[in-house]
Design a protein around this nucleic acid. Structure first.
Lengths: 146, 146, 146, 146
DNA sequence: GTGGTCTAGACCACC
DNA sequence: GTGGTCTAGACCACG
């Protein structure tokens, strides 16, 4: 995972990391009890400051996905898989409703919206974005220009 | 007037103002050549910092919707109506594609997506706030003295 | 407030700041809607790094006490006073139970505990710790040796 | 044996171990001259990092409870029983005063405090975990072969 | 080795 | 001016 951190995407890096982890849990790549890469480890492998990674871990701990054992590392919480999937779903459904609301406000007809949606659903093959395989290979270090 | 500026929505205030104006142009409430309310006027009427309104006007000028005549005010550009509608459409379509991409990535099936979309289309009125008509009252050009 | 930040107390500085604010809200010194001192302002007045203050503010936002308006500042949430008092109470009651549990485990008798408690309740005058007046004078700047 | 080490309690593991031993000495389960389990033995039996156990022993040695004989092991100091009980008492009394001070600062009345204390004293057994007897099984000195 | 706290200072978006 | 993000690097507690 974490092969797709984009420093220039506008999305905060810590949020991208959180999304990656959330996705990994939701799809079973990270299982309850699994230990996450250490802050330093991950920060080096994705070329990001340790504080940034730590912030992601802390956020996810607050949100109930992870827990920390001082001196031992950060772990995936038990019984969180379903909640995690639910959260993803809810977030996306909310955004969908929002965008469609805007579409209507902008004067697009239901037919137009349906057509766009249908087209969007047809495009792109893999049902899950990056394949689990890709996701799994832990952070090929990429040492961009310093 | 501009009753739908929400300071706590997370959406930047200047962007909300821009959207209102863009929509007003697209739907003919603001016509080419119309003068917009002055920065001070608008900022007072919607209780927003003048700098914020000024930024919105500047942005829209850069994007080709408005032009400024020093000492006279800010006006709606000619021949911009169609472009304006097009821009709205394109933006929204892009966002739709994006969200649906994410939905697929999160594991939602095409059927689920279609169902959500259908439900959202069925709902009456915009999901967050006043009707477009209300929204645009403010945008009505005013040739008030000064 | 914030006259009593102790850098060497072992209690994290950000937690001390949070406690101060929580106390100020609970006791009505900070009222719903009030704006807090800006991060930079407060960080200078108590000689602490802005990041530390920012962390306190963010924590309290997550906990529901504060909300942020970008570019405007950080404010006390509405309808939080009671919750705030409740939280304080609950925390302290929990700690009391804990300590008394330990006292019993260490072999202190109920009588002994009661005596200690009675003594502790008798000591010290002001019912509220620092007087509201003290608390209010916003952070006399103290520039300790650098 | 040492069934009450809770890795997730927030209380440092080394402190939990120290408390267990201190309590064992105070209550006569460990007598002056008794040999403690070796670091490795204890660390295995309670599933804790040997460094952590070693730190506990070191701390208790500094505090005068234990002494080390190179090659022989770690032993309970003579004439330490009373001191040990005293220390426990003093620590707990200090904490009680502290918490009650906070309770007053938070606005709890003396009556409320007394009520909470009474309730807490009424409860059977320690509030968090096994009975003292259980706790100390492990602490039973073992003269196992080296 | 692990994470947690704090500092210093840069850059950005927003108002 | 406001807060938010990120970096760099120090020091500490814990295992």
């Amino acid at each position: 995972m974490f092969t797709d951190i984009d420093l220039d995407s506008g999305v905060p890096v810590y949020a991208q990391i959180e999304n990656n982890i959330q996705f990994a849990i939701a799809s079973g790549i990270l299982k309850p009890g699994d230990r996450l890469p250490s802050v330093r480890e991950l920060s080096e492998s994705i070329n990001v400051n340790p504080n940034t990674v730590a912030k992601s871990y802390r956020d996810l701990e607050v949100r109930g996905y992870l827990y920390t054992r001082r001196g031992m590392g950060v772990f995936v919480n038990k019984g969180i898989e379903a909640k995690c999937r639910e959260d993803s779903r809810r977030q996306i459904i909310a955004r969908l409703h929002e965008v469609i609301g805007e579409a209507k406000a902008a004067g697009l007809s239901a037919d137009e919206v349906n057509e766009i949606v249908a087209k969007s659903l047809r495009v792109e093959g893999p049902p899950y974005g990056p394949t689990p395989a890709e996701v799994l290979q832990l952070a090929r270090p990429r040492r961009a220009a310093k």
